[in-house]
Simulated scan of single mutants.
Amino acid sequence: MNIDFPLILMIATFVTGLVALADKLYFAKRREQEAEEPFLIEQSKSFFPVLAIVFVLRSFIAEPFQIPSASMEPGLIKGDFILVSKFDYGLRLPVWGTTLIPVGEPERGDVMVFFPPEDPRYFIKRVIGLPGDHIEFHDGQLSVNGKKIETTPLGGEPVYRPLNFYAEEKLGEHTAKIQWMVSPEASSNGQMMVMTGPQGKWDVPEGHYFMMGDNRGNSADSRVWGFVPEENIVGKAVAIWMHWENFTDIPSFDRNTWIN
C-alpha cells in the first residue's frame, strides 16, 4: 500500500491549525472558568507549530529520500539517503505540483525525483530529454537531437557472475558515470553480451521530460513507461548525506558527497 505522506501532512497541518485558531477566537473565551483545555485542543495547539514547520520545509525547501533500488548505480546505490531541493525547479503547490513561483527548469544531466505517469511512487532518474528533444538509444549509445553523446569507457569489474562495465557520459554540464551488465547467460552461445536495456527512438512532448537510470541495463524508466509531465516533478537531488541499507547495519557517512 502506498501512503500519500504529503497529503496526510497537509491535512494534519490544516486540521490542527484550524482547531488552534478556533480555540483562540471562540472556545478559549467560553471556558474562562475551566481549569484545563480539552484534550483535542491541547494536542492541536502543541502539534500545529511542529507540523507547520515540517510542512513548509519539506514542501518548499528540501526533503530527504532513500534510494530503494540499483537503477542509479554506480553513483547512487541502494540505501543511500539523499537530499532533494524543492526550489531549484520553482516553488510548487504541495500535493498538486502546480508551479507557484518559477525559479528554474530541469537541465539535461540533472538527477531528479518525480512521479512516473500513472504511478504514485517516487522515482529517481537522470534527465536525458528536455521538451522538444529527439532521443535515440541503440546498442548502449545515446543520441540527443541527432548528436551522439560523448561516452568514455572506464572498464569493468566482476560482481557475482555478470561483469559490471562502467563509462562516463557527458550530459550538458554534468558528467554521469553509467553502468551496464555484461553476462554470458544473456547469449545463447555463451559469448559475453552487453545488457543495455530497452532501445528505441522517442520525441519528447512539450511540458514533459525523458528520464533514464544510470544503470542502463537495469532500470525501468522513460524507455518503459514514457515521459514525465512537468507537474509530476518533486525536486532536484543535490547530495548524499547518509548510507543505511537496513536496520541491522550501522549508518555510514563515508559516501557523503554532492550529486553530479
Rank of each mutant, 00 (worst) to 15 (best):
G172Q: 08
L142W: 08
P116V: 05
G235L: 03
T175E: 05
V56H: 06
P64S: 06
G197F: 05
V238C: 11
K29N: 01
A186E: 12
E37T: 11
E63G: 05
G197Q: 13
M192A: 12
G156P: 04
V228G: 02
W241D: 08
S59P: 12
P68G: 15
L163P: 04
L21C: 04
N256F: 08
P229I: 12
P229D: 01
P162I: 01
V224W: 11
G104I: 07
I41C: 01
Q141R: 14
P120S: 10
Q66N: 10
L57E: 01
R216F: 09
W202E: 11
F253Y: 15
P68S: 08
M242L: 14
P49T: 13
W180L: 04
L18N: 01
V113H: 08
M212Q: 03
S222M: 09
G90I: 06
V111R: 09
F39Q: 09
F5I: 13
P64W: 06
G90S: 08
M212R: 03
A239E: 05
E37S: 10
E173P: 11
S44I: 03
L171A: 10
S85G: 02
F137S: 02
I41P: 07
T13K: 00
I135V: 13
S46F: 12
G140T: 04
L57F: 13
T151R: 08
M181A: 15
V95N: 02
Y160V: 09
M181H: 15
V103R: 08
R58H: 08
Y89R: 07
G207C: 09
P251N: 13
T98E: 13
N2L: 07
L51D: 04
L93P: 01
I149K: 00
T99R: 12
I8E: 06
V159F: 14
W244V: 10
N215Q: 02
H208I: 05
A20G: 00
P64M: 00
G104L: 07
P251Y: 15
M212Y: 06
P94M: 12
W244M: 09
L7Q: 04
F137C: 08
W241A: 09
Q141E: 07
L9F: 01
V113R: 11
E231F: 09
I259K: 05
V238G: 09
Y89W: 03
G217F: 12
V234A: 14
M112N: 10
E206F: 10
V127K: 01
M72S: 06
W241C: 09
S219E: 06
F227I: 03
A186C: 15
P116F: 06
E36L: 05
Q66R: 07
P131F: 07
G90P: 14
I233D: 09
S219Q: 03
R216G: 13
T152L: 01
I250S: 15
E169G: 15
S46A: 11
F81C: 06
A52T: 12
R92K: 12
D203E: 15
Q199T: 14
L51I: 02
E136T: 10
Q179N: 12
F14T: 12
Q43A: 09
P38W: 12
D139Q: 14
V238W: 08
G207N: 12
